[in-house]
């Protein structure tokens, strides 16, 4: 899971930089960035699967409800953000996506902390 989170965090950072560039240049979302967002969402689906597989193993001390909550919550952020941003063809629409990709790594950290409770 740590490797997956590392890869996803790097992808989030790259997409965030790209979005900042688009905002500064006042450009619309382009295809490469859209595909990167799709890849990110696919990675979040993998995260959900890996997380559930992990929970089927030993997980004493983990707050399961919160863990599953973060796994599911992470899935909805990009699609909701994308739909909400789509109706605003301006810098602010791109800004919505920027907020979304900044929030995701925070969720990865929370998931990590929740899982580390097994060792505490």
């Amino acid at each position: 899971m740590s490797l997956l989170h590392l890869v996803l965090s790097v992808l989030c950072a790259l997409v965030a930089l790209r979005l900042v560039y688009l905002i500064v240049r006042d450009r619309q979302l382009d295809d490469p960035t859209f595909y990167a967002l799709l890849a990110l969402e696919a990675g979040l689906v993998v995260q959900l699967v890996v997380g559930i597989v992990r929970l089927s193993g030993p997980h004493a001390g983990v707050n399961v409800a919160a863990y599953v909550g973060y796994l599911l919550g992470a899935l909805v952020i990009l699609p909701v953000g994308f739909v909400w941003a789509a109706a605003e063809k301006s810098r602010s629409g791109t800004g919505v996506l920027l907020v979304a990709v900044i929030v995701l790594p925070v969720l990865f950290l929370r998931l990590h902390d929740l899982w580390e409770a097994t060792r505490g």
Partner: peptide
Amino acid sequence: RRFGRILVFVYGL
């Protein structure tokens, strides 16, 4: 609209 688009999204989160 405009900045409000971002604000609503943060509120939603």
